[in-house]
Write a protein that binds this DNA or RNA. Structure first.
Length: 516
RNA sequence: GAGCCAUUAGCUCAGUCGGUAGAGCACCUGACUUUUAAUCAGGGUGUCGCAGGUUCGAAUCCUGCAUGGCUCACCA
């Protein structure tokens, strides 16, 4: 078939001449062929359809705010001249005049093109524009009869021709898969998505500001590790060619930051990507962002105070309040937050008091009685932890610092001097989810070696997430590390909490998906 | 990895009992110089996710596969 279609200004396109179409040839081919034809038409008009630098004098929101209190007569008298750039989001042609809405970073503003003003030639060019095209306009601000602030166009420039149609104007793009795969389209048509990512940036900015104010130094440490330590997780493996060296992507920031505390930097933090080779869910992405900080001469009590104040401040900065809602649940982030020992919480919920239980056998018996699933290799501390995870965790709605984790699951934390079965460690829970993990850092190299040895034993028993021996880290401790408080916060989950997003994929610009 | 659900036009969605594909927006043609989901007249642009099977006939029923979503598992 060689049907011809004609478009606005008379160009004929043979549909069989669609050699420009990409491999995936979809049925937007029709729209795309029309746009290709218009592209040619721009070239024939002597206009470069992929333009260059454009000097922007105003953003949409600034204009709307300035014009808002003024009547049209006042606006016309002032002749407020503006240059605005953005993407055409809607077009309404009326013969010899046209309206359009343009979108820039701040939002949407209406523009008005009139043949009398532009002249016949330029107006015809305006009519050649499509939804999705990027343009720069110069003109003056007025208000229409209905009162909408609008730019009366005196000149316009095509900055980039759009060759693909945008999604529909009032349902936007809903298909979740397409939204993640083509996040740029999602950002163009879904303003709330754009706002979420703006808020993500604000949260991190706020965090940096508050840490800087407390004298923390931002540092960057390697993401390629010989030994992936500092957490219990399976790493991604990679390889360096020139050194012919097997390497792991980091699973935590911890061990390098503590080396810097040994080095005397005293207060350091890093906001960085970590990689864990695990399943994907609404709360897990294989790469995610952690903030870890270490402060010499502090302990885990100081870390609790720092954590609650930090998150409270961020909430005020970004949300303007400490009373937030997540998934319909009202949450109060005003400090101070509840502090509870893990063993006390287990006793509250199950009646089992692990301060009175002193051996693994009794603990195992209690687990069986209370329907807590445990593995054969689990010792006392693991079983306490299983009780907490299976019985207590989901009951913690409002911010709660749970402290006193068993030593078996805390190979990098200092033991509690009163009861060395437990550590001076806490995790922060909100709505059943972990948001922070912190401890008084273990600075005794001899104890640290024992802990690593215990981890190696676990590894032999089949726990492939147990810590490996890190001799280089122990050497650092042997030079002497001051008593130190350390803290880690999962940035993505914090952003989810503060932007009320149900899935981690909604706070990651490009979540990992299987290839199409 | 398991269970459940989804996949139809560029986008958002209908599609009855199995009878051969529809709407709105977008797009195209024409009209219209302050519109507002602009309006009016006309035009359907499709590998019904993919591959088999059942059937005279499959978007529809069956099987497998792919991708995604949710839940669980995993993730201290």
């Amino acid at each position: 078939m060689s049907a011809t279609i004609s478009i606005g200004s008379g160009i004929k396109v043979k549909q069989e001449e669609e050699s420009f179409l990409s491999e995936e040839q979809d049925s937007s081919a029709d729209v795309m062929s029309v746009r290709r034809a218009k592209l040619e038409e721009w070239y024939e008009l002597g206009v470069e359809p992929f333009g260059r630098r454009f000097e922007v004098t105003h953003r949409s929101e600034d204009i709307l705010r300035k014009a808002e209190p003024l009547a049209n007569e006042e606006l016309e008298a002032h002749k407020m001249q503006v240059k605005v750039a953005g993407r055409i989001m809607s077009l309404r042609g009326h013969g010899k005049a046209s309206f359009a809405h343009m979108m820039d970073l701040q939002g949407m503003i209406q523009v008005y093109a009139k043949m009398d003003q532009l002249g016949e030639e330029a107006y015809q060019q305006f009519e050649l524009l499509d939804i999705g095209d990027l343009i720069g306009v110069e003109g003056y601000v007025f208000k229409t009869r209905r009162g909408e602030t609008t730019i009366h166009i005196e000149h316009f420039t095509l900055l980039a021709k759009s060759l693909r149609p945008l999604p529909e104007k009032w349902h936007g793009l809903r298909d979740v898969e397409t939204r993640y795969r083509r996040r740029y389209v999602d950002l163009i048509v879904n303003p709330d998505v754009r706002q979420t990512f703006i808020n993500r940036s604000r949260i991190i900015q706020s965090m940096r500001r508050h840490l800087e104010a407390q004298g923390f130094l931002e540092v960057e440490t390697p993401t390629l590790h010989l030994i992936a330590g500092g957490a219990a997780a399976r790493p991604f493996r990679t390889h360096h060619n020139a050194l012919d060296l097997g390497l792991n992507m980091r699973i935590a920031l911890e061990l390098h930051l503590k080396r810097l505390i040994v080095g005397g930097l005293e207060r350091v933090y890093e906001i960085g990507r970590v990689y864990r080779n695990e399943g994907i869910s609404t709360r897990h992405n294989p790469e995610f962002t952690m903030m870890e900080l270490y402060a010499a001469y502090m302990d885990f009590h100081d870390m609790m105070k720092l954590t609650e104040e930090l998150i409270e401040q961020i909430a005020i900065d970004v949300r303007g309040t400490t009373e937030i809602e997540y998934g319909g649940q009202a949450l109060q982030l005003k400090t101070p937050w509840r502090r509870a020992h893990m063993v006390d919480l287990i006793r509250e919920v199950t009646g089992v008091d692990f301060f009175e239980v002193h051996d693994s056998e009794t603990a195992r018996k209690m687990a069986a009685e209370h329907g807590v699933a445990v593995q054969d290799m689990h010792e006392f501390g693991h079983i306490v932890n299983e009780f907490f995870e299976q019985k207590v965790e989901s009951t913690l709605v409002h911010p709660t610092f749970v402290y006193g984790h068993p030593v078996e699951i805390s190979p990098l934390a200092k033991k509690n001097p009163q009861d060395p079965r437990f550590t001076d460690r806490f995790e922060l829970f909100i709505m059943g989810r972990e948001y922070a993990n912190a401890f008084s850092e273990l600075n005794d190299p001899i104890d640290q070696r024992q802990r690593f040895l215990a981890q190696l034993e676990e590894r032999e028993k089949g726990n492939d997430e147990a810590h490996e021996m890190d001799e280089d880290f122990i050497m650092a401790l042997e030079y002497g590390m001051p008593p130190t408080g350390g803290l880690g916060i999962g940035i993505d989950r914090l952003v989810m909490l503060l932007t009320d997003q149900p899935s981690i994929r909604d706070v990651l610009l490009f979540p990992l998906l299987r290839p199409e």
